[in-house]
Amino acid sequence: MDRFNNALTLFFSLLVEAMPFLLLGVLFSSVLLLFVDERRLIAAVPKHPLLAAMVGGGIGFLFPVCECGNVPVARRLIVQGAPASMAVGFLLAAPTVNPVVFWATWIAFRDQPELVFLRVGLSLLVAVIVGWVFSAQADLRPLMQPTVARAMPAVRDRPTAAAAESSLLQSGTYWLGQSDQPLRPDGSLSTSAIAVNPALTKPLPDKLWLLVNNIVQEMRELGGVLILGTAIAAMVQVFVPREWVLGLGQGPVTSILAMMLLAWIVSICSTVDAFFALSFASTFTSGALLAFLVFGPMIDLKNIALLLSMFRGRAIAYLFILAGQLTFLFCLLINLYIS
């Protein structure tokens, strides 16, 4: 019974901690939708997939969201027709490469500033490489959840201004396409705004009301899966002994693997995970700490549930394997040759 109470305390602790950041994330994402024309942003993205991935990784600095908040933004970028490399680069880098996280990590590791820069640099590197790899898939739609895929513009058939006329922001309805598209199940604000974002031209009060509605909708969607993910994370933490995880490693290889596993299980928000990693600063290799700080924000147990709102399982497996292997490789190099 005690154990059950502990699991519940952990569960609510994670939720109460994650909720403000989730709210901040959907707020940024909604503001982005209503006040920023991503098409302009997307249009400005370089054509070369590598450069696009770099831009995607870098724009995290404009949107200080953690890994709960980046999914809706990345999802919208994809729906708006951003290149895969940019969206994936953003998805993986944004939770780490942003001012809030940089600041928090700096506070935590003031006496090891190299760790702060390595964290940001390595996250960007991994994100850019994975984004680049994803650009090999010209049409992302087979990898996306059907509802997201439906809202995505076809690759050869990027949205034009004319097509946009019909997609008034009548979210949650069926709309009759003006052209050849028949009765089409509409997405939400988040998935329906395909072309020119019609919300951009609305008067301010309407915009604010749309903002509220969009926040509520994304809160509802992401909050539901956050709860499922958090429940699993709390149960694993209480029912799998921590020593078992920690005991896995002191060596250069096993310590990295152990920290990656811990990062994956604990699912701690990227804004605050530096403090958590600090607790292991004296027992674990720098490479292992770095692996925790780089890999955790990219993919963890809680976050998989959120990613499932966007990608199919197969794509998440690719992301997971690629990001995991790259993180492991780079951190191992750091363990063996630098620290």
Partner: peptide, 14 residues
């Protein structure tokens, strides 16, 4: 729209 929500239908999630 019942179709847009992923994983959980809106009513369920709420």
């Amino acid at each position: 729209s019942e179709s847009h929500t992923n994983l959980l239908p809106p009513g369920w999630s709420s």
